[in-house]
Amino acid sequence: MRIAVCIKQVPDTEARLRLRKDGRWVDEEDLPFVINESDEYALEEALTLAEKTGGEVVVLSLGPARVKEALRKALALGAQRAVHLQDEAFEGGDAPATARALHAALSRESFDLVLTGSQSDDNGYGATASVLAGLLGWPHAWLVMGVELEEGGASLKVVREMESGMNEIVRIATPAVIEVQAGINHPRYASLKGIMQAKRKPQEVLTAADLGLDPAVVGAAGSRLEVVSVAFPSTGAGAQMIEGDAATAARVLVEKLRNEARVL
């Protein structure tokens, strides 16, 4: 089974964020970056499936030079090859623009499965892989909690999380795009041997020109969604401090959740 895993490098969720001067994104200087959490689970799922079927795992990521570090970690964890979509023309894309670039890269070879996380921890559009599935013309499942191979990999039994704690089980014919949730498996630690081997694994860098893509259809130029500004939510408003000992405070909290917030 040949599996592609699309990962995104995002700011560490524990990092303290500052706004960029133009107010349209966060200041990336000195910001620690990590692999997007649900993408780490997608990679683990891919590595496990490949171990069962003896296949290959190729990891892809779109972004600036810093993304090499995320790809290197994926290689250290066990992916066999990395593909880095690196071109200024790719920067600032919305979900369809990014999906177009990924689609072009994936279409150069034949995969049985594309795995990725359900949502990125920075933009959180949760749409890139859906568009990608559309471009590929492949079936697609979102919010996936479990993946099982069927018919020797010709189809997959996929558990999806629905509202109200229900699960949906669907059967999907491969090739397919699967978007997994964080928490569905236990991502492995890279072995120190794996880390040392990673630099010897093939790492390919692709530009828009390499993929035969018109720069006008990718990145900011190819996007019909434009980030106008980002801002921190205003603090203080709406917050209530509940006084008293634990038992009293808990009782007041439950009343408020029930009667004011109406979430219980």
Binding site: E69, R72, K73, A76, Y189, A190, L192, I195, M196, A198, K199
Partner: peptide
């Protein structure tokens, strides 16, 4: 080096 940082961060997480 990048490997040295990754080694450190991996052991740190473990």
């Amino acid at each position: 080096t990048e490997e040295e940082r990754l080694v450190r961060d991996t052991v740190r997480t473990f």
